[in-house]
Design a protein around this nucleic acid. Structure first.
Lengths: 165, 165
DNA sequence: CGACGATCGTTCGTGCCATGAACTATACAT
DNA sequence: ATGTATAGTTCATGGCACGAACGATCGTCG
């Protein structure tokens, strides 16, 4: 209990505001951590906001995007989303309950199912994708025009490297 | 005794499959959506992986980062993290149970509390921040050296614009 | 053909994160 | 002294995620 007093002492340092914002890590900016960590949060919350406006969760949005590409089986979809199959079961359950996706049998393998978009799901994914696109475009409007494409290019290099990594 | 909770937000990317990668949206690449949405996922899962290695959740990492800057009261912290006060109560409960933070009274306002890092919490946040920094550095190694600083610069412009927006 | 291991998806138990509404205790202003 | 505002918590609900265990089916191999 004596250490509490010590801690209290520390508390009074730094009334300072101006601090590092959304994420707030490392006011001292040791290694350039914050930009990218805050960028992650800004991008993620932007996508989350769009999803919420469309009455989706971000994960449901990703699910629908995956299915927009093509119908998929549970195992592939799980790997695609980076989650366990068990988690995907619940995700698909909820999406199915909302009429966004369907489970269809796979001819030739009675264990497997194919998850597909319903009509409603198709509409939802189009709305979601266009919403995300425009929200992210707005974000980039903070940059001078000439830098926007460059930023996208660098982003896709980073993403591409992870993908092939 | 120590119950250790691991929340894995891994997103191990598929070997290849030629598809549109981590997120898998829009195979047609309509408007340049995917780069930034996939970037969000790559960054977020990188932070998540680092957190997991340190036996934290990403949100606990953010909480600790906020407190590393200075002790804060619940309301400020909630705004800082972008969540409701009610959600923060649970977050702080769990962090307190794990000995990472403490609730201290605020002299002059008996309703309020000040959340502060414990010694363990201080160590944890340093480990987390350095881990995140080096993981994100590794990510940028995919870029030619001259582009890395530029990418960070553009990122911080975007983030800065959101913050002041 | 029949047994056996691998694969597919689900269920179960647990835990984290988040919300909104309702609540307690305290502060403050009139 | 009374009424209103603020600080934080509790409660009910729900989405997301894990690992372990499970039933059903598939393939293979003897």
């Amino acid at each position: 209990m004596a250490e509490i007093i010590l801690v209290v002492y520390l508390c009074w340092v730094r009334p300072d505001k101006t601090s590092s914002g959304v994420l707030g890590c490392a006011p001292h900016d040791v290694v350039g951590l914050p930009e990218l960590m805050e960028l992650a949060i800004v991008l993620t919350s932007t996508v989350g906001r769009v999803a919420e406006e469309r009455e989706l969760t971000p994960m449901q949005g990703r699910l629908l995007c995956g299915l927009a590409e093509r119908p998929q089986r549970m195992a592939d979809l799980a790997q695609f989303l980076g989650i366990e199959k068990a988690a995907l079961t619940g995700l698909v359950d909820r999406a199915e309950r909302r009429g966004l996706v369907e489970r269809l049998p796979v001819s030739g393998d009675r264990r497997a199912i194919q998850v597909t978009l319903t009509d409603d799901g198709g509409k939802a994914v189009v709305a979601f994708e266009t919403g995300v696109a425009s929200a992210l475009d707005e974000l980039l409007e903070a940059l001078p025009v000439k830098d926007r494409a460059e930023f996208r290019r660098l982003a896709s290099v980073v993403v591409g490297a992870v993908r092939t990594g």
